[in-house]
Amino acid sequence: MSSATSDRPVPPYVDATKPSIANVYDAFLSGSDNYEVDRGVVRSVLKTAPEAADLAVENRRFLIRACRYLAEHAGVTQFLDCGSGLPTAENTHTVVQRINPDSRVVYVDNDPLVLAHSRALLEQAESAVIVSEDIFEPETLLRNEVVRSRLDWDAPIALLHMGTLHHYNGEHVRTRQDIMRSYIDALPSGSYVAISHFLDPEDEYSTTARKMEDVFLRSMMGSGTFSTTAELNDLFNGLELIAPGLVRCVDWRPEDPQLKPLSVAQRCIAGGVARKP
């Protein structure tokens, strides 16, 4: 059955015949803001790795813990959240403003559904806003009037690239490291960079990681690259990683003990937070 008849009415700004990264992620989290084409991608991935939904879950948990660390322990009050995706229960501004109500958040995305939902959510918010830009074109994004005016570029900023860079396929004829270098060069001293990314663990779980990658790349979504730890370290461009460094997301400052053996997917997504001197 097509999404046009099996789902709620499709907004005119949404193409429900093509999967959206944000919608697929929402479907992995059992959300309601997705269509049959997005769920088709999820089903194809789950056939190869039934625990793949943990990729989305661990990414979200890492985002929350990293934001808490940055707001509470690092004292950051400004956040630039690139590729923010569809709003959920614990958004960046919700997490950090609970710790410091004066925190400011600029979300960036160019998915029409994300923009519409986020603008509705943030309509009454004075310290959080979303702008439409391509997160893989940092020079243009960083010139955006709202990005420039809502953040103080003489004070530390936390740059978030959570679950975004593995969806970059070289469309702009530059490497992911080049993209991150442009962001990092623009950040004020004392700023932080937080990244999560699909991981090839280079062990007995590598085969499953590459199978998941193949399914993502062959799906209509067409993106989802798994990278080694060395490749992910390069994205931080030599910044000082905060302990415990670049590790599996589940191992980054966990709030509760891990009582069950890790799933394959939990072993295949990594994250880290680093500081710019």
Rank of each mutant, 00 (worst) to 15 (best):
A4I: 14
V10P: 04
V10G: 08
P19C: 01
D26Y: 03
A27W: 00
F28A: 00
V37E: 02
V41M: 07
S44A: 14
A52T: 11
A52L: 12
A53R: 15
E58I: 10
F62Y: 05
L63G: 04
C67R: 05
E72H: 14
F79Y: 11
F79G: 09
C82H: 07
G85N: 02
L86M: 07
E90L: 11
N91W: 01
H93Q: 10
H93V: 02
N100D: 15
D111E: 05
P112C: 06
H117K: 15
A120G: 13
A125S: 13
V129W: 00
V129R: 08
D134R: 01
R143D: 14
R150G: 01
W153D: 02
L159G: 03
L160M: 08
L160D: 00
M162R: 08
M162D: 06
G170Q: 00
E171L: 10
H172D: 12
D178L: 11
M180H: 07
M180A: 07
R181M: 08
I184V: 07
D185W: 06
D185G: 03
P188Q: 06
G190A: 09
H197M: 02
L199G: 06
P201V: 10
E204A: 14
K211F: 07
D214W: 11
R218G: 13
G224Y: 05
E231M: 12
L232V: 05
E240G: 05
I242Q: 11
W252V: 01
R253C: 01
P254E: 04
D256K: 15
K260L: 10
P261G: 04
A270Q: 11
G271W: 03
G272F: 02
V273C: 08
